[in-house]
Amino acid sequence: MTHDDLEYSPYVAGLGLSNGHLQSILPSLARRISVPFERQRLELDDGDFLLVDELAVETPDAPLVIISHGLEGNSHRAYVQGMARHFHDAGWHVYAWNFRSCGGEMNRLPRFYHSGAIDDLRAVIRSGIERGFKHIFLVGFSMGGNQTVLTLAEPDLEAEVIGGVGFSVPLDLAACADQLAKPAQSIYMRRFLNDLRVKIADKAERFPNLISLDGYDQIRTFRQFDDRYTAPLHGFRDAQDYWQRCSSRAVLNRLQRPTLVVNALNDPFLADACFQRPSDASAHFLLETPPRGGHCGFIRWRLNQPLWSEKRARAFAQALLSDRV
């Protein structure tokens, strides 16, 4: 299959919606979508659990889409629900899984989640295969997009996985951390750190010998947060080691299935490295860099109708599915 074989219509921003910050913020504030998810608890081999929201179809042999949200997101964010609705309307079974600690219930272990925690996504994939799904497509947003790309590069990737798409993917974690540390991005940085503070406080209370909240209010950047919490809790030397080992840009030459990444050039979260195709990238790697779109935005004025990103993901998935069946 070549790029020309895929159904494709370039994204055009709605009138007055070309600003990257507006495109990033407006959907989370104004989009109103609710789908009838049914929640399942997936027990993990290490004693922890994941909360997976499911949108079922009755069609035998329906394909499965697995949706991964972004940093401090969850399955009830509008971008997840919109994607779930669009795929479900086309006859796809949907899993929208929540990272550890993100589904409204704190996970059991001291660890929580990070950009390279693909063991959990692999567990969700295996649960779908155990249910009998023969064709599985992955969709990821932001951090979930990074996990999606990493997973699609795994040498032992399950044969049932036909490919995937990531939107607003921080392919180079170090460069994106530096981008978000800039004063122009302070509104996002403060929000992330405030949300994460609640979780660190909970874990500090339950695991006082491992985690402390002391001095948290002095943290201003992801480098400081990841140095103090993410790296030691998840087996990395420091933030730099974590970013280097978990950046999906490093695996683009090893992709096992067709992988589409869509990164808008005006995304305030992403650095220049996220818009460049490495010279050694796999033929499976497709990169689209529309001039507009913001971070997980890609909106026009009819916010509650299917977004361009949802149509793009489903078109790509349907093309891959057609090649399989």
Rank of each mutant, 00 (worst) to 15 (best):
D178G: 12
D241I: 07
A201L: 08
G215Y: 03
K203R: 11
L210N: 04
R206E: 13
R206L: 12
G166W: 00
E160M: 06
D226Y: 00
V198S: 11
M143K: 07
G140A: 06
G140E: 07
P232S: 08
G166H: 00
G144L: 10
D195R: 11
A177T: 08
W243M: 09
L213V: 14
V198L: 13
L152K: 10
A239G: 09
T151P: 13
D238Q: 04
A174G: 15
D217F: 00
L157A: 13
L173Q: 02
K182W: 04
L210A: 15
P208Q: 09
I200W: 02
P183Q: 04
R190Y: 03
Y229V: 08
V169K: 10
G163Q: 10
A184W: 09
R237G: 02
A201D: 11
D227W: 00
L210R: 13
D156M: 11
I162T: 08
S142V: 13
K182D: 14
D241N: 08
D226Q: 06
R228A: 13
F167Q: 12
L173A: 01
A201G: 04
V169A: 07
Y216V: 06
R220L: 09
C176P: 09
R220G: 14
D238G: 04
L171A: 13
Q218A: 15
A184Q: 14
I200N: 02
E205L: 12
N209E: 15
L233W: 09
I162N: 05
D238F: 00
T221K: 00
G144I: 13
S186A: 15
S142R: 02
